[in-house]
């Protein structure tokens, strides 16, 4: 039986087990810029915190209502009403479901002063209230928002009560609803 001729391996020939390391070596020589577009990354954490902020502010510090002769009807004890809508209330609530209440510091006023929230940009205006030292709802159903409304003051007096001046300090307070 004839045998197939065998080829003699030259000393410089590579066997299969040597090809892989050689390819590995050649690949490692390829410049980094060709293989990878990214040089490196770095990161850090940045935290944003927001405090609870619920604020209201009246646009004017002083409001005046004067009941005078023009507001009197002969034979009628009730004088007025005289109204003032020059003041706005501004608010900013970042807590959910808030309301605004209103009260006066004057425990025994001589005349009657009422207040009403008019056309609020957010929430629901409560009915007109006669100011007392007990806080009453002024604006309700106000969620997280920033808004404004008109404050309408209405003053009346009884002719039988005579003349005089009531000085009120009106306080608007943000409360949880």
């Amino acid at each position: 039986m004839a045998h197939a001729p065998t080829r003699s391996r030259k000393p410089t020939d590579l066997n299969k087990g040597q090809i892989l390391p050689v390819l590995f070596f050649i690949l490692a020589l390829i410049p980094q810029g060709v293989v990878a577009q990214v040089y490196g990354s770095s990161f850090h954490n940045v935290t944003v915190t927001v405090a609870t902020v619920n604020i209201v502010q009246a646009s004017a510090a002083v409001v005046s209502l004067t009941i005078g002769p023009a507001d009197v009807t002969a034979g009628v004890d009730l004088m007025g009403p005289v109204t003032n809508s020059a003041t706005s209330l501004l608010w900013g609530f970042n807590s959910s479901l808030r309301k605004v209440t209103v009260r006066t510091n004057l425990a025994a006023p001589k005349f009657i002063l009422k207040v009403l929230c008019v056309t609020p940009s957010q929430g629901t205006a409560s009915p007109e209230v006669t100011l007392s030292t007990t806080a009453a709802d002024f604006l309700i159903n106000t969620g997280r928002s920033s808004g404004t409304c008109t404050i309408r003051y209405s003053g009346t007096a009884l002719a039988s009560a005579g003349t005089g001046t009531d000085s009120h300090t009106i306080t608007f307070t943000v409360a949880a609803q």
């Binding site: 935290t47 915190t49 927001v50 405090a51 209201v56 502010q57 608010w91 900013g92 970042n94 920033s146």
Partner: peptide, 11 residues
């Protein structure tokens, strides 16, 4: 880093 928002403007 931390950034703290603590105030605002009514309206």
């Amino acid at each position: 880093q931390t950034l703290n928002i603590v105030a605002g403007t009514a309206g």
